[in-house]
Amino acid sequence: MIELIASGLVLASMYGLVAVGISLTWSSVGMLNLAQGFVFTFGGYVAFLFAQYMAKNFSIRDGVLLSLGVVLLGMIGSAIAGLIVGGLAFLPLHDRVNFPVRGLIATLAISIMGTQIFMLIFGPQSKPLPQIFGIKRLKIGEFSIAYGQVGTIVVATVVLLIVTLWMRRSRRGLQMRAMMMNPLGANMVGVSVRTTGMIALAISGALAGLASVLLGQIFFVSPTSGVQPLIVGLIISLAGGLGSMPGTVLAAVLLGFAEAVTARYTEQSFVPFVQFALVIAILTFKPRGLGGVLEDVRE
């Protein structure tokens, strides 16, 4: 039972990280970032390069410092990738006509190029990341959970909490929420749409980078490893209501548990079925998603 909950929560935290990033970008910048898969993979490769460098030059293959470095560099790398996406797709386009559709296409173009460039540099093979939480298992009574699972859940929860609090309390967070509501009005109270948008892209990039490093524990990093998280993240942010943090997290938990339960009691191949049925059910009853308030407000 505990194992089930643990695996559900692990999936939920991964999905939540990616989906919150997508949702954040959409709501503050007004652009659906389909290059999030590229951002995800970028962070993974930066972390991999770091680990490789440490192993080669200092023969460090595990330890707290290395884990910390891998996580941090993954996040920084992905944040930089987020800024690259912003520089290519957001800055030149944001005040042009038909920005949402053109931005979407531009991010798609970036993701096409990104995948191929990774292929050129790293080749099609998967690259492993070091096990940042060790390989031991935590025993609770008769059940046992891998440290990796516990670590993933804890780190994801803490980071999401920090981001939520930051959005609620700080000046930048207030500005970002103001920009979500009324970009023109925000412009008039001194919020630069360009700067704030880039910050939002960097933050959502960092979230994706964290997810990438955490997911890299299980699936390794490959040029196309961003596709699956991107799709699932998109679907979750859609079901959660684009722009709503609580809605997105709730949807991530729902879908994560749905996947864990389905995979345990039936076959793995039923997972997409169940997830889709769930999302379509949610969208049938709430076309704006679970927490969808923003769109109505923006009108």
Binding site: L93, V97, I105, A109, M113, Q116, L120
Partner: peptide
Amino acid sequence: GPWRIVLVGFLMLASVLYTR
């Protein structure tokens, strides 16, 4: 090799950035 897809992506990006 992969460069041709990069070129396609580049063309796509350019056409979306510079043309309506």
